[in-house]
Computed example of a mutant assay.
Amino acid sequence: MTDHSTAPDSPATDTWTLANAKARLSEVIDRAQTGPQIITRHGKPNAVVVSAEEWSRKTARKGTLAEFLLASPLHGADLKLERMHDVPRDEMP
């Protein structure tokens, strides 16, 4: 059975034991459409099932590296960086 625990930012979060999640995978996936489903192993959180839409939203790139660097509060700062001039490592066989 699921433990209907509620996370503050995700009212539809359910917790499943690994055995219950395996036995009721279809239900876990259905419920993931409304909120994250936590799967525990040995009583500890081990995995989270989320909808494909939520995964896409969380992993979507939010701009380029150049845009990130240009938005930095250090952009335009006159930083003096020293680089180490070590010799390269030997190639591994």
Results as ranks from 00 to 15, higher is better:
35 G>V: 03
44 K>D: 05
18 L>I: 08
37 Q>H: 04
87 V>S: 12
49 V>Y: 02
79 L>Q: 09
47 A>V: 13
14 D>F: 10
69 L>I: 15
35 G>D: 04
89 R>Q: 08
65 L>R: 14
33 Q>G: 11
27 E>F: 02
23 A>L: 08
68 F>A: 15
9 D>A: 09
4 H>Q: 00
15 T>W: 12
59 T>S: 08
50 V>I: 09
88 P>C: 03
26 S>H: 09
59 T>R: 02
41 R>E: 13
59 T>F: 01
4 H>R: 03
49 V>W: 01
53 E>T: 11
75 H>E: 11
58 K>T: 02
35 G>E: 00
29 I>P: 01
31 R>N: 08
29 I>K: 05
18 L>T: 10
72 S>K: 15
63 G>L: 13
33 Q>F: 08
9 D>T: 04
83 R>N: 13
66 A>K: 15
15 T>C: 03
78 D>K: 12
7 A>F: 00
72 S>A: 15
33 Q>K: 10
31 R>C: 02
12 A>I: 01
3 D>Q: 08
29 I>Q: 06
56 S>K: 06
31 R>D: 02
84 M>N: 15
58 K>H: 05
29 I>L: 07
28 V>T: 04
42 H>N: 13
1 M>R: 09
91 E>A: 10
30 D>S: 14
78 D>V: 05
4 H>A: 00
24 R>F: 08
60 A>I: 03
9 D>R: 01
81 L>W: 14
57 R>A: 07
64 T>K: 09
20 N>D: 14
22 K>A: 07
3 D>C: 03
68 F>C: 14
13 T>N: 04
52 A>V: 07
